[in-house]
Design a protein around this nucleic acid. Sequence first.
DNA 1: AATCGCCTTGGTCAATCGCCCAGGGCGTAC
DNA 2: GTACGCCCTGGGCGATTGACCAAGGCGATT
Lengths: 192, 192
Amino acid sequence: MPGPKAADQGREVRGRLLRVAAELIAERGWSAVSTRLLAERAGVTPGLVHYHFSSVHALLTEAAIGTMRGLVEGLGPLLEQAGTAEEALDLMLAALDEHDGRDPMSLLFAETYLAAARDETLRRSLAEVVTAFRDRLSRRLAAQGVAAPDQTAAVVAAAIDGLMLHRAFTPGLTAPALAPVLRRLLDGRELT
Amino acid sequence: MPGPKAADQGREVRGRLLRVAAELIAERGWSAVSTRLLAERAGVTPGLVHYHFSSVHALLTEAAIGTMRGLVEGLGPLLEQAGTAEEALDLMLAALDEHDGRDPMSLLFAETYLAAARDETLRRSLAEVVTAFRDRLSRRLAAQGVAAPDQTAAVVAAAIDGLMLHRAFTPGLTAPALAPVLRRLLDGRELT
DNA sequence: AATCGCCTTGGTCAATCGCCCAGGGCGTAC
DNA sequence: GTACGCCCTGGGCGATTGACCAAGGCGATT
């Protein structure tokens, strides 16, 4: 038997490759990430990439989905703590304000969306992650009496993503400036 | 002198390369468009690409910006004709409904956004095109008495783009379902 | 008819790509 | 102490990449 020590090291390297892959997707773009670049950045030899993963594409897919899932699962609980729907919206705007559309996380988002449009498997996984988040937001809005919570959540999530993209080349899209407008989406409140 | 006939043919080929480039960006992705693929699809030999354009990247940039500009300049006048702000919004939703997030135009949009995030020149050009459209929408909203027209236009434009992306992997984001929610953005109307 | 210059050809160049594989290192179990 | 199995190395395969260039076609001008 190979013993747990070797297995641990293997898992560590595998995880490092996943992290490096996420970095490189954002840095160079999905299709510009190569076996050799991954190996060099992770401090291993090229052969290892195809030992731990069936293909570069499979590695990129797992890295992208894993990162997105981690991000969404980190934001979800915060959403639950928000008292009012306005606080939930402010929370998302605060998250938006941390990205300028050209930072690694924004680019990974965009790259993953784009790759998902062309890859069936990735599309399913991404749909799962995004839908989970949107449902969470929808329930939060519904609890606050916002009308049409599903559609509202969809529009809010899409608007945040779209704003993230637009910030890459348009100045002035700051959270304080946009908050009053986005709050209008929470109108149509039903009486409790 | 080479005569106008040869020059006309040259311009025709150049234009064909631009159209083919836009198709291929959407089809395969920005960085997967190769000299030989372009030439084959356009019915010419590879050498021609570098005769008409300084590099493949320059060709892609011109093709992407040109297509985006054409689309925006086609939608702009329609915006002007819209009587009310609601009609303007419906117009954009109708445009959204023609795309499912995986059609050529959606993919070209996303690819261009992503490429712009990494390229200074493309970013400037794209900013110009998008800002022009948003200003047009903003003026339309202002004329209708919508409060904070600049910010509202920015949110509407970003929401439409975001929804286009999300439709690639999420069903049910149809215009009729979303229209009531998006109309809330037009609230905060001042009295005339 | 001779000449000029733009448009077009098709092949070559070094570099890089994903993927593969034979073999070495090494800790564990028999 | 021998054999096993996992982790990892590093070079090699054919294919493809962007860019480049010498040469020819061909209509317009002189």
